[in-house]
Simulated scan of single mutants.
Amino acid sequence: MNPPVEVVDDAHEQLVARVAAIDVAKASGKVCTRVPHETKKDKRYTQTWNVAANTPAIIELADHLVCQGIERVVLESTPVIRRRRKAVRDGG
């Protein structure tokens, strides 16, 4: 394993207190949120759960993230990335 590399935040980079990440698969997604803890100062609260990949479930997820005050959502879809890398490798 290579040693980790420290990344220094530039002054223009924004630190976001309330974030969500979603790992997208074909029929579902794994959601993770990190928000400030409600009662413990300088602590964070993390939740993870699965969400179906259908319109009602996505609308419900969006409502939930809005209610939590989520400021930024990051998506990852590993199979899509793999297909893109293969297409680039194959010249397409």
Rank of each mutant, 00 (worst) to 15 (best):
I70N: 01
R82I: 11
K30Q: 12
H12Y: 12
E38G: 11
D23Y: 05
Q68D: 00
V51R: 00
E71D: 12
P36H: 05
R82C: 07
R18I: 05
N54E: 08
P3D: 12
A27G: 13
Q14Y: 12
L75M: 15
L65T: 00
D63T: 02
R85I: 08
I81C: 12
C32N: 01
R89T: 04
A62K: 07
D23C: 00
N2I: 13
E6D: 11
I70T: 00
Q68G: 00
S28F: 06
E71N: 09
P3M: 10
G29T: 02
N50Y: 10
R85H: 08
E60K: 00
V88S: 05
G91C: 02
H37D: 13
Q14N: 14
Y45Q: 13
E60N: 03
N2E: 13
E6I: 14
V5L: 13
G69C: 02
T78M: 14
I59Q: 01
K41F: 07
P36N: 06
P79C: 06
K43W: 12
D9S: 15
P4L: 13
A53F: 13
P79A: 06
L75V: 14
V8P: 06
A52T: 09
A52C: 10
R34A: 10
R85L: 10
G29W: 01
T39M: 06
N54S: 02
E38T: 09
I70V: 08
P36W: 04
Y45P: 01
E60H: 01
R84I: 06
V74F: 15
V16P: 08
T78R: 08
C67H: 10
A11I: 13
T39N: 08
K30H: 12
V66G: 04
L15T: 12
K40C: 07
E71H: 07
S77C: 15
I59T: 07
V74P: 06
V7Y: 15
P56V: 04
A25H: 12
I22A: 05
V19F: 07
A52N: 08
P79H: 08
R18H: 12
R89N: 05
P4T: 05
T39V: 11
M1E: 14
L65W: 00
K86W: 03
A21S: 15
T48F: 01
T48C: 11
A11E: 15
R72F: 10
D10Q: 15
G91M: 04
L15S: 14
A62V: 05
G92L: 03
E60D: 11
V51K: 04
G69E: 04
D90G: 03
A57L: 04
G91L: 03
V5E: 13
R82L: 13
Q47I: 08
V73S: 11
T78H: 10
V8F: 07
D90N: 00
N2P: 11
R44F: 10
H37N: 09
R44P: 01
P4N: 09
K41A: 09
L75F: 15
P79E: 04
I22C: 04
L75H: 14
V88R: 08
A25L: 09
R89H: 03
L75A: 14
V24P: 01
A53K: 03
H12L: 10
Q47C: 09
R85W: 02
V35Q: 07
P56K: 01
G92P: 00
T78Q: 09
V19G: 05
A27Y: 10
V19D: 00
Q47F: 09
S28M: 05
R18M: 06
N2M: 13
P79W: 04
K43N: 09
N50R: 13
R84E: 06
V66M: 01
A87T: 02
G69S: 02
